[in-house]
């Protein structure tokens, strides 16, 4: 396997990881399921490409702007669905994801269903890695703050969260917004990596894939999401030689993990520096239960 190919897989993993980190906050830490996150990726992708191509802004500004547009759209959806009981939100995201794809299929400005070629390629491994590192640091800081704890409280027991004074609606909105920004940035990366955008890249399959990765990695674990994104993006690529059988292998791998570790790869735990030291026999003994 040559370096160029390996690099491609790593970049794709990084792009997925960005979206998975965001979804992990929403699903893994706040307990809200979304089946339309690819829709936020699409919005971010088209917005970032549009801004970069037409206004000639630098890459990072275009990506952030794409993320912001996705975030703002998410606030509209959240505003109307997050006050309702859980399932409405889930159904709304499903409808939203499909609606976005249909709209893009039919808006000719962006090339419609045939796609939008000729987007300048500006993504290389180093900037994907940097963006992901920033994304990971931000996410870890967030979930380890009072803001993150409030979101976890909502996941664990919403009613109790309210009665200890947490504005659950506000925190669901913050969680959704943040996760949509991540998805939007991931979408922007897609465009600037492949140089080509097409609505069907952001369909239900993509949304489902993201959710599978979050659950596979372990609900409520940032390191689980990282591992999940790397493994589950690389796996189908490495198995590409086996043609369609690779999807079977992918399915089997996911099912195997879910049966042997129903709480996901990391199961709410984090890989920490101290934990690694302990595992290899250094460091002190006192074990810390998940302190979130």
């Amino acid at each position: 396997m040559d370096w160029f190919y390996a690099k491609g897989i790593l970049i794709l993993s990084g792009i997925n990881l960005m979206a998975v980190l965001g979804l992990s906050l929403l699903t893994g830490f706040t307990g809200l399921f979304s089946f339309g996150h690819a829709g936020f990726m699409a919005i971010g992708a088209y917005a970032a490409a549009f801004i970069g191509v037409n206004l000639g802004l630098p890459l990072i500004v275009s990506l952030l702007a794409g993320g912001l547009v996705a975030g703002i759209v998410s606030l509209f959806i959240g505003r109307f669905t997050l006050k309702l009981k859980g399932d409405y939100f889930c159904i709304a995201t499903l409808g939203f994801g499909e609606a976005i794809r249909l709209v893009l299929d039919n808006v000719q400005v962006f090339g419609g269903a045939r796609g939008w070629p000729g987007i300048p390629i500006r993504i290389d491994l180093w900037n994907v890695v940097l963006i992901n590192l920033a994304g990971i640091v931000f996410m870890i800081s967030l979930v380890n703050s009072r803001h993150g704890r409030n979101m976890i409280a909502i996941r664990e027991e919403e009613l109790a969260a309210k009665t200890i004074g947490i504005d659950t609606f506000r925190y669901k909105m913050i969680s959704l917004f943040t996760s949509a920004v991540y998805a939007g940035i991931a979408g922007g990366l897609v465009g600037y990596y492949t140089g080509f955008l097409q609505p069907k890249m952001f369909g239900m399959t993509k949304s489902t894939e993201l959710t599978i990765i979050v659950i596979f990695g372990g609900i409520g674990s940032v390191s689980g999401s990282v591992l999940g994104a790397l493994l589950l993006t690389a796996l189908p690529e490495l198995l590409r030689a086996f043609a369609l059988w690779r999807l079977v292998a992918y399915g089997v791998a996911v099912i195997f993990i879910m049966i042997s570790r129903p709480e996901g790869l990391m199961g709410g735990k984090e890989i920490t520096f101290r934990g690694i030291l302990r595992a290899v026999g250094f460091g002190h003994k006192h074990s810390k239960a998940r302190e979130v």
Binding site: R149, I152, E156, E157, A160, G165, G268, A289, E291
Partner: peptide, 15 residues
């Protein structure tokens, strides 16, 4: 109605 999967400490810290 505790935060069931969190530690005793995290339950209190959250509040």
């Amino acid at each position: 109605r505790l935060f069931k999967r969190l530690s005793v400490y995290s339950n209190i810290l959250t509040a």
